[in-house]
Design a binder for these strands. Structure first.
Lengths: 155, 155
DNA sequence: GTAAAAGTTCAAGTGAGCTTGAAGTAAAGG
DNA sequence: CCTTTACTTCAAGCTCACTTGAACTTTTAC
């Protein structure tokens, strides 16, 4: 029944870590990257507002979708700063990646298709094959050969 | 009209690179990782069989789908070695990742859903939310916080 | 015949996203 | 009070998938 030590509704880094499942080292890293913020107790210890949990959740989701931390930062920057973002703010934010997700899904569908048709028939000797990059430079999925799949198709 | 220098139908590393769009440094790396093989000309220069183009195509596709080079190696190991793999061999191989792709698509659909419902409502304070890892440890998409999305949800 | 282009190996570097370790301070529990 | 446990910073390390550079040999083109 008693309030926890942190100033009423403020969370320590470990509390955030346990509740979000994100390691505290990662949280410090996110703070360094300006994706989340903390206040400091007199001692220098971090104190997170509850609302950081939602931000962290967003970060995790967005990564899962395939956004880089830089991109996530840009998204998060769109949130209002004059008040703690509410459901509506978050909804607005997430609309933009619905498109992202749809694009990625579309790519996967294409791969699924091209997979059997393209690879098995052997047409993948490049330039002929239309699998090789329909200009979706947006969707990133880690390294991978740079230009077949990445960019140079669009020379 | 004349055959190219390499022993008839054998390709140099740069020919493979140009035809596949994969950098020659990457091709050397793939060879080192045993994903592709080459013979050597007396000089020590690599000579690739045409069929390596299909393998490289497969590698590129598979990466796009989200497989790591290790996983791709395992897949490639399933190809017959007693003959140059033909369309049927490749088709058989690709069946396994149809599932993979479907799983990933499903995850994206879930994310798309959970995105609005879950994040905007704020339920993502973890443990309650069913977004947080429906046990698909398989789908990898780069680093990201290890256990919320990765593993620890499952204890 | 010679210069440029293409090939080789090996070691080290890159970028993203963290993790780990060292060395020290602060807070919580008995 | 004293011992854990929690927290801090900073620097270095790690994985993945390559790339880059150095130093050198081979092939090709004129």
């Amino acid at each position: 029944m008693q309030a926890l030590r942190p100033p009423a509704a403020m969370l320590t880094i470990n509390q955030v870590s346990r509740r979000s499942g994100v390691a505290s080292s990662a949280l410090r890293y996110y703070e360094e990257r300006k994706l989340i913020v903390s206040e400091r107790a007199g001692s220098g210890h971090r104190r997170f507002h509850r609302s950081v949990l939602r931000r962290v959740a967003f970060i995790v989701f967005a990564q899962r979708v395939g956004l880089s931390l830089d991109e996530i930062g840009e998204e998060l920057a769109k949130l209002p700063t004059d008040h703690v973002p509410g459901g509506a703010d978050w909804s607005r934010l997430s609309e933009s990646w619905q498109r992202r997700i749809d694009a990625r899904i579309a790519e996967l569908e294409r791969l699924k298709q091209g997979l059997s048709s393209c690879i098995s028939c052997g047409c993948l000797s490049l330039e002929s094959c239309r699998m090789t990059n329909p200009a979706d430079r947006a969707s990133r999925l880690g390294p991978g050969p740079r230009y077949w799949v990445g960019q140079a198709g669009g020379r």
